[in-house]
Nucleic acid binder design. Structure first.
Length: 255
DNA sequence: ATGGCGGCTCGCAGCCGA
C-alpha cells in the first residue's frame, strides 16, 4: 500500500499535475493540502475518472484538505473534534482498515506573531485529540504539511533558521509530542540522502540552490511502521513548470 | 537586504504562504 501527501498550493492550478502524478505513481492514497477550493468547486469528477474516491473539506482562498483513495472512506471527520476553527485544516477517514489523518498545520508566520501562538495552541489540541485516536486505531497514519522541520538535518542552514518559525524549539517540541504518541517519522526509517527537503521557497532560486526544509511528513503508528518498506520525496515534481512549492512525500507499506 | 515568487480576490494592490 502506497501512501502519499502533497501540499499542492491551489488544486485549481495543480490539478493537471495531480492527475498526471496519480497516473505515474499510482498511490493507494494521497492527502492534499492547500486546495484553496470551496467544496462546490472541488474537481470530484476528474478525480473519480482517474480511479479515485475523494473526501474533501475546503474554503475559499486559504487552506483546504482532501483525501484521495482507491478504496472508499468511512467515518469521515472534518476538523479537530471539540475545537472550533473555521480554517479547514484537518480531515480524517478510515480507508481499508487504516485510520488516515490529513493535516495542514498552521504556518505560524513568525515566532512573535499571533499566528505563531495559534499554531502552538492548535498543535496542543491536535495532539490531545490524537492521543485518543492512536489508542483507538492501532493502524493510524498522520500525513500532511506539518510546517515543522523536526531536526537540524531537515533544514538547509540550521544556524540561519535557529529560533525561526518552522524550526523553533516549541514547534520541534510539539512535533516530538506527536512522536511520543507512538508515531514514527516514516522518512527516517530508512537511509536517505543528505539535504532531503520537501519545500523550497519560490524566491531566490530556492529549489535550484536546494535551500529547502523538510516540513511535510508521514507519521505511522507502530503497527504500520513495522511494515513500512520505503519512503521518498518526489522532488521531481518541484522541478516542473509552474510547480507547487512543496514536493509529494511517499511511504510504502507491505500491506 | 522585510526583498525575492506565486496564488488568491466582488482584484488592478494587498493579503498570505514558509
Amino acid at each position: 500500500m502506497k501512501l502519499a501527501t502533497w501540499n499542492v498550493n491551489s488544486l485549481r492550478v495543480r490539478l493537471p499535475q495531480v492527475l498526471e502524478w496519480l497516473a505515474a505513481r499510482s498511490p493507494d492514497l494521497l492527502c492534499l493540502q492547500e486546495t484553496k477550493l470551496e467544496d462546490e468547486k472541488f474537481p470530484a469528477e476528474e478525480i473519480i475518472a482517474a480511479g479515485y474516491r475523494a473526501e474533501y473539506a475546503g474554503q475559499k482562498t486559504y487552506n483546504g484538505v482532501a483525501i484521495l483513495s482507491r478504496k472508499p472512506s468511512e467515518s469521515v471527520i472534518v476538523g479537530i473534534p471539540g475545537f472550533e476553527d473555521p480554517q479547514k485544516r484537518v480531515l480524517a477517514a478510515t480507508v481499508d482498515g487504516m485510520r488516515v489523518v490529513c493535516v495542514y498545520i498552521p504556518n505560524g508566520e513568525s515566532v512573535d506573531s499571533d499566528k505563531y501562538r495559534y499554531k502552538l495552541h492548535w498543535l496542543e489540541r491536535l495532539t490531545a485529540w490524537l492521543k485518543g485516536e492512536t489508542a483507538r486505531y492501532p493502524s493510524l497514519a498522520l500525513l500532511g504539511d506539518f510546517n515543522i522541520a523536526p531536526e537540524e538535518r531537515d533544514v538547509h542552514d540550521p544556524k540561519l533558521w535557529e529560533g525561526k518559525v518552522l524550526f523553533s524549539e516549541p514547534e520541534r517540541a510539539a512535533f516530538a509530542g506527536l512522536i511520543q504518541l507512538g508515531l514514527a517519522d516514516s522518512f527516517r526509517l530508512f537511509e536517505q540522502a543528505e539535504k532531503s527537503f520537501t519545500w523550497w521557497d519560490y524566491r531566490m532560486n530556492g529549489f535550484k540552490r536546494n535551500l529547502g526544509l523538510r516540513i511535510d511528513h508521514i507519521l505511522l503508528s507502530a503497527a504500520l511502521a513495522k511494515v513500512c518498506q520505503h519512503s521518498e520525496i518526489a522532488r521531481d515534481m518541484r522541478a516542473r513548470e509552474r510547480p507547487s512549492d512543496h514536493a509529494p512525500v511517499i511511504a510504502e507499506l507491505a500491506i
